[in-house]
Design a protein around this nucleic acid. Structure first.
Lengths: 137, 137
DNA sequence: TAGCGCTGGTCTCTTTTTGAGACCATAAAC
DNA sequence: GTTTATGGTCTCAAAAAGAGACCAGCGCTA
């Protein structure tokens, strides 16, 4: 195994060995991936990678997130160690959210995916269009 | 801008210009990212990156997915052009799912994230533990 | 001093999404 | 003739998400 990135074949074997059952349940990678694969998580990490933002600023930046989900997603990201939450005792108190070192470290590979998305959204939209046209026929 | 990966500051500006409103709504990256950030999507892409699998095989590989969600997630992945579905006229008919070129191309950056998760799941679990301990106190 | 707005939330209600599991047709194997 | 395997769909319950009212504290303004 000289490649830096293991191919998936061996990954599958590793998981099978780890979980003892030959399947993906309780896979640690799943645990981490699911934490950042929510509807809003990657978007917020992306925003915070730019610079720290306050609650209201994030709300305006992502206008179609509900206040409830913004609160909860930030809470989850904080719990998993990606985001730092700091309250400033102004009147009224303001709260600033920023990425931790772990968060920045995670953003690096996430950015690869974002870049791929940026380069390939035309291909995806085209595939979608073709598929829908075919299923209408 | 000599870096291959643009920093997010400029991304934000680009989106603001594109959407005209200075926010993340209708961002094309969101459109693509949300398609692959479902609970099961990345997991299935990961499995199919190994080799083509049949419906029942995937079901056994990911035992805690419901049949309904497996059907639907595969359908969505097929619609977005990541997965190819082929029916073999055996009795009973068998169906094989495989990654398309687009799917394989997307798996490359996804794998970076998977690798990060693999290397850092301890850090995440530790952060989670510390956070929960602190909030109980 | 009475109203208003701004802060970052929480609470409740409704709608959407997901999960659990029954059901289906076909044909081969037992 | 009963069971087994195929890849689904259908229905109903549970969980998650969205919409929007409400809240407390203070500053501003009229």
């Amino acid at each position: 195994m000289d490649s830096k990135i293991f191919n998936l074949k061996s990954k599958l074997e590793v998981y099978k060995a780890m979980t003892g059952g030959g399947n993906f349940a309780d896979c640690p990678v799943r645990d981490v991936i699911q934490g950042i694969s929510g509807k809003w998580s990657s978007l917020l990490v992306m925003a915070l990678a730019d610079k720290p933002y306050r609650f209201g600023e994030l709300r305006r930046l992502v206008p179609d997130i509900s206040q409830r989900m913004l609160t909860q997603t930030l809470y989850d990201l904080q719990r998993d160690g990606y985001v730092h939450r700091e309250v400033f005792p102004t009147k009224p108190p303001s709260v600033e959210y920023s990425l931790t070192d772990l968060g920045r470290s995670m953003f690096a590979p996430l950015q690869m995916l974002i870049q791929w998305a940026e380069l390939n959204h035309d291909a995806v939209r085209e595939a979608r269009g073709a598929f829908d046209a075919a299923s209408r026929a």
